[in-house]
Simulated assay, not measured.
Amino acid sequence: MRMSKFFASTRARVGLAAVAIAAVLLGVGWYVVRDGSSTGPSGAPPTTASAPVDDSSPAGDGAVNMDGRAPLTGLPVTKALNHPAVTVKVSNTPDAHPQRGLGSADIVFVEPITGATTRLAAIFHSQLPPQVGPVRSLRPMDAPLISPTKGVIANTMADHWVQQYIDRVAGLANLGTLRVPSGTYFIDRTRRAPNHVFAQPARLLELTDRVAPPPPYFSYAGDVAHSSPLSSGRTATSVTVGYGGSATATWRYDGASGRWLRAEKWAAHRLEDGNQVSAQNVIVLHAQRDLSFPQAKSSMTILDLTDASGSLQLFTGGKVVDGHWTKAGVDRPFTFTTTTGKALLLAPGTTWVECALPGMPIQTAAS
């Protein structure tokens, strides 16, 4: 979408949610997944239970049948996830650490926003922690990244032209801090401004008229062994994304847990609960800079993700495979394939996507 679409804005679609949804969300706070690796608000592993999942009917591209699975992780679920996804824009500057609630996210996008600074767009659906943050402002690239979820986005607003753009083109309920009743967001007085605002996902869902769960964001194999990296990739035990300064991120594969562990320039990326950020899948997505926004300051980084394409690497289970992405309109989903044109299949589980610009050094090691 280009600048001609800025000159109209739409009002955020706000209303009262169904009482039943609010009761479930407030009373439960998270949903159970069957792999045992996810945690509830307390940090303890959730209880597991048997639930029939049909893995015998994969889609034509080899992806697992998503019936009975969480749409944003591909993990089997024991409860229906009949509510929208909530995305929270999270500050990632050193003074914003330790962050709260990120360990419950299904998908996290790492967005370069200025030189050597990143911000996170964390998507929550299979688990809804009580609080997430610190919350920060929107960026134009949030529209193409998050619109495919068709859910709610939490933020501390943005420049007027950015708000206009998001409202105009994104299929999201934009529930920024100035658009909701007092008390919807939590102010933590022990934190310094501007990193003192925290979103409360369940309260946000009470304020939207949206009820539909998100469509699947990725395609998944039935298990790690059948994922694209394990099927056709090469060995990789670490990858470093050179954002610059303290934002530079390194992921290392931990064979004991079968997960990738994140560190930033100076130390392990640890959350408020003491746990290190981890993921089943890590995607390094390469995108060009979008220069079509004349209102943007020269220091603002915006990725070109609409009517665009690029390369990627998918890291899963100690392996990496090269791939390709394409995307049409803002609301349209990405298409992810291997370099041979086959569907890119992730392992069921959480996914972090590191968005990289041309010229950012990407270093991969195999030992």
Rank of each mutant, 00 (worst) to 15 (best):
G242R: 03
A268H: 02
D304L: 11
S219C: 02
L285Y: 08
E264D: 13
Q295N: 08
L291N: 12
Q280L: 04
A287G: 05
T301E: 02
S298R: 13
E264G: 02
H226T: 14
S227I: 12
K297T: 09
L230F: 01
K265V: 12
A221L: 08
Y253I: 00
A225Q: 11
K265I: 02
Y243V: 06
Y243F: 14
L261V: 15
D290P: 00
A263T: 14
S238K: 08
A296H: 07
F293D: 10
Q280G: 08
A263D: 09
S231G: 07
Y253G: 03
R234V: 14
D254Y: 01
T240N: 08
A247H: 06
Q276E: 01
W266F: 11
G274V: 11
R262D: 02
T240W: 04
A221T: 00
G244Y: 13
G255W: 03
V277P: 01
R259D: 05
H226I: 00
S228R: 11
A268I: 03
L261F: 01
H286A: 12
A247L: 11
Q295L: 03
G274M: 08
D254S: 08
A249F: 10
G245W: 06
L285I: 03
R270C: 06
S246A: 13
S298E: 09
N275G: 07
S228Q: 01
G244F: 04
W266A: 14
G233R: 03
A263P: 00
G245H: 13
S246W: 00
T301G: 07
S219R: 15
